[in-house]
Amino acid sequence: MADDAALIGSIARGDRDALATLYSRHASWLQVRLRRRCVDDDVVAEALQETFVAAWRGAGRWRGEGDVGAWLWGIAIRRMIDLLAKRPRHCPLAGVPDPVVASAEEQVLVRVEYADVATALNRLSPDLVAVVQATVLDGLTTREAARLLQIPQGTVKTRMARARLLLREALS
């Protein structure tokens, strides 16, 4: 079975089957991840679609550095931001879930030394978490984060500063 990098090579040469394979490998997790950031299924579907159209057209420019999954996610999140910006109505962000009681998985997933970070992160208000998620975890610029969350850039900066302060306090 060809690995993702080889698939991108085939796609660059116009192989439609390779694109179908890439889609079957990556569409699911991208959909779930996008869906956590926007509850509007139409936007998610369109972002997903545009991601693979962009992958088809941009495969020739892929230099083979880094992970294909990360590359696709980078396209997907930016496409979704563009789509949200075009929508007249705000797309409500997926609600922040209730705190979950620490389970066995958590013990594995979040190692003991990071437990404090997790607790601190979970204690932040939804607004602040959204900013941390967009800038730190999704790697967006302040401007992109502002468009995704539909708030001014200045607000992103102040919320990020506040979140950083709260996290530092919680961890000290």
């Binding site: 922040v96 879930p97 979950v100 997790a118 992160l121 998620q133």
Partner: peptide, 9 residues
Amino acid sequence: GGLDQARAA
């Protein structure tokens, strides 16, 4: 969507 932020991240 039933996972807290830290674990989801």
